[in-house]
Amino acid sequence: MLVQYAAVGLLFIGAVFFACAALIVSRLLQPHNPYKQKNITYECGMLPLGDAWVRFKPSYFVTGLIFLLFDVETMFLLPWALCFTEMGLAALLEMFVFIGILAAGLVYAWKEGALQWH
């Protein structure tokens, strides 16, 4: 079991190695002639105005929060989905309550306008 997950680590190194090898081979074949004008940020062809590292809209942040909520819910649901048939009616009803609370949360977020684009 653990050996299999060690293989995951090896494959991770392998994937990075593949990318490195591809970049090195390409580096040997390509011309290399950078100069100032070529290395200006491209954007859409005009000279860029200012930096891109600025504060960004928080509407993405709200989605992140809702996602976190539902992702944790998925984590609880995964083991339940595997064996709820053997655990009887109680497991099914409890999960109804659990999903119901989260659905209520979704409805609340919806009403509050968190799902709206600001």
Partner: peptide, 12 residues
């Protein structure tokens, strides 16, 4: 694509 130059902007 392999034979194209890698251009990395100065500001990146």
């Amino acid at each position: 694509l392999v034979m194209k130059e890698d251009i990395v902007p100065d500001k990146a």
